[in-house]
Simulated scan of single mutants.
Amino acid sequence: MENGGKANGGEEKEKVVEKLCRRCKETFNPSSNNTSSCRFHPSFFVSRRHDDQKRYYELGPDDPPYAAKFYDCCGAEDPNALGCRTDLHVTYDE
């Protein structure tokens, strides 16, 4: 080949290696990672009363399943709620 063995007029495409974010569990391209790329909850989804931040308890049989479960950081009661914070993606390599 006259163009040095390279296809498409001598241009080689660089293979992008995507990484997995350990906070939001999404794959991302490290070259496009910015402070609004990752949406996550910085705290845990907990099971306790909103008004009593120290005592954990089991839900009773008559309690609705969402009554005492929420994200400790923002109070969202849906376990699938969008994260309340944004920041850079964080890889498992870091």
Rank of each mutant, 00 (worst) to 15 (best):
E77W: 14
Y66D: 13
S32I: 07
N8K: 12
S31E: 01
Q53Y: 02
S37C: 03
N34P: 06
R85E: 15
S32W: 01
L82I: 15
E58S: 08
K13F: 14
P65N: 07
F40E: 00
E12S: 14
F45R: 09
P30F: 00
T27E: 05
D72R: 06
D87G: 06
E26K: 08
K19C: 00
D52C: 13
G10A: 05
P61Y: 05
K69D: 04
P79L: 06
C21I: 07
K25Q: 12
E12T: 11
F44L: 15
K69Q: 12
K19R: 14
N8S: 10
F44G: 10
D72N: 04
P30T: 02
S36T: 07
K13Q: 11
Y66F: 12
N80C: 11
D93H: 01
D62H: 07
H41D: 10
D62Q: 12
L88N: 05
E26F: 12
S37H: 02
V46Q: 14
M1L: 08
G4S: 09
C74S: 05
E77V: 13
C73D: 15
C73L: 15
S37I: 00
L82N: 13
G75Y: 03
N8P: 04
H41W: 12
Q53L: 07
D87K: 09
E2G: 09
A68D: 08
D51Q: 12
N33E: 01
M1F: 12
R39M: 04
G10R: 00
P79Q: 13
T35K: 04
R49F: 14
C38Y: 05
V46M: 15
P64I: 02
N80V: 12
A67P: 05
R39Y: 08
G83Y: 08
G75H: 09
E94K: 03
K13D: 09
P42Y: 10
S43I: 05
F28T: 03
D62S: 08
G9W: 08
C74D: 05
D72P: 07
E94R: 05
D51H: 14
R85V: 13
F40K: 02
K6N: 14
G10V: 05
F28S: 10
D52W: 06
A68Q: 07
N8W: 12
S43W: 12
H89I: 01
E14L: 02
E11A: 09
D87M: 09
R22A: 01
T91D: 01
D93R: 00
V90C: 02
A7M: 15
V16W: 04
E18V: 10
N34S: 00
P64S: 02
A81S: 15
K54D: 14
G60F: 07
A81L: 10
M1Q: 10
S43A: 14
F44S: 14
C84F: 12
K25V: 04
F28E: 00
P30E: 00
G5S: 09
D72S: 07
H50T: 09
T86G: 01
K19S: 04
Y92M: 05
D63E: 13
N3C: 12
D93Y: 00
T27K: 09
E58L: 13
V16N: 02
D87T: 11
E14R: 11
F28D: 02
T35C: 06
C73V: 08
S47D: 07
